[in-house]
Design a binder for these strands. Structure first.
Lengths: 256, 256
DNA sequence: AAAAACGTTTCATAATACGAAACACTGTTT
DNA sequence: AAACAGTGTTTCGTATTATGAAACGTTTTT
């Protein structure tokens, strides 16, 4: 903790590291337990937690255990760009899910990964389910490939510098050359497929969502098990998703 | 900033104050602008923002303006206590809204106020709409009065010490004595009404949601314009909301 | 009854945050 | 064209703050 490239507030970084890394793994933590896991001193951890508690960022859960607090929930809902995207996407996503009967996801690109902003789940028992606010690799998801396909050349070259294309299944695209070809095809077809590239048995189809300046700001995907996802359905799925996407685009432009 | 009652990390407090108070008011801030508003030194503010930026808690929006970042959204979604409440309430709330055709809210008590955890909006044009994650006073809302009614005596006496009962309309209950009588009646009737106490023309009805230990953990309300909200509807509304509440209670107990 | 765990407090010391001033840059006014 | 008025950013000596070993008060386990 000596060589920081910039002059930053170390205790702020420590505080968020507690929140981000460690309070994620588990529901509740004791002071010593968390200190050990974080590699901080017991007293330091206690002081940080006390500080965060005074701000309602964490709170105590009965017997001296710390859990994430309500203020954090409140702050999360303030994130304006995504707040609006989430609001405007909700009803269209639900309509798509109702019509197709598969889970619908809505996400943006953030730090080279997909951030799931919203979803509408399939009414069926066997379905895909993802945590809102969680991340997934972009190169092996339909959502991610669409967003990469419409990104600037700079962003894409950065992407290849920073991201290692690891195989999740035998279908995962693991070479930069192949991925570039795929992205080109996506731009031409105006939709992306994920043919069991992230998980065996899981197929997705995704299209871009544009803002009023014709820039891609998000994407929508439909995900389902390969047993239900037949190639003859693609055309009808696409027309339903595109209807939903244009609904979101209309809602956004009405407010901006 | 000299007399702190405990030994807390001041820079952590400052960082969250930037997020909480100031990044809420506006969409984007310059460094000097935010420093002036927060009463911090320009350099301090810059350092705090740089720190938060390195953590993706804030991000830059084009021309050197800071906005809330994605990590905050992600962290907000990790808040476990309410994550489950939110998940379990979604479908029941939507069913209630569909049946009654009025907006349904779901909230908990936090720091003497109502925190809106979830909602399902009325399908009609004229409707009540609230921001998830936002707060409202408890004493002049049906949601809040239900939660106060089922709170411990200690919490209620604390409530009266810390909260000033201000009139929002001519119907607002502004005396502690009257509010205590109201809370007693709510416990007897097992539901609360808000008869234009927060806003003229706005009526709400709310009931409690219990956990498996028969403690009240949240409440559900239906809100609508006085033009549609007739006293003869109360009985049928109540039976629909109670059905939804017991659905939520079942879902919660299945998982805990 | 002893031991081992917990959260919490203390306090001298080492490390960090602080902020005035200077810098680099952009756009506006004279 | 030159001076000015705005930005965000960097520097660096100093004042403030965070640090952590040790001790404390409880509770739980042995």
């Amino acid at each position: 903790m000596k060589d920081v490239n910039k002059d930053l507030n170390l205790s702020v970084i420590k505080a968020f590291r507690l929140l981000d890394v460690y309070l994620n793994d588990k529901q509740e933590w004791g002071v010593r337990e968390l200190a050990k896991k974080a590699g901080y001193n017991k007293t330091t951890t206690y002081r940080l937690l006390s500080t965060l508690e005074s701000l309602d960022i964490v709170q105590k859960n009965g017997d001296d255990k710390y859990i994430l607090g309500l203020k954090l929930f409140e702050l999360g809902n303030l994130v304006s760009i995504h707040k609006s995207l989430r609001n405007y996407s909700r009803i269209p996503l639900e309509n798509i899910a109702k019509e197709i009967k598969e889970t619908v996801h809505f996400g943006v690109l953030s730090n080279n990964r997909i951030l799931y902003l919203n979803k509408a789940e399939s009414p069926l028992g066997l379905k895909v389910s993802t945590q809102i606010g969680s991340y997934q690799e972009a190169y092996c998801t339909a959502l991610g490939k669409v967003l990469l396909a419409y990104s600037s050349k700079n962003l894409i070259s950065d992407y290849f510098k920073n991201v290692k294309l690891e195989a999740h299944t035998s279908n995962t695209i693991t070479s930069a050359k192949d991925l570039l070809i795929e992205l080109k095809q996506i731009r031409e077809k105006e939709y992306a497929l994920d043919m069991e590239e992230l998980e065996l048995g899981l197929i997705c189809i995704a299209i871009p969502v544009f803002n009023k300046n014709k820039e891609v700001v998000a994407s929508i995907s439909v995900s389902g098990p390969s047993s239900r996802f037949k190639s003859e359905n693609i055309a009808s799925y696409l027309s339903i998703i595109k209807k939903g996407a244009s609904e979101i685009e209309t809602r956004m432009s009405d407010y901006n």
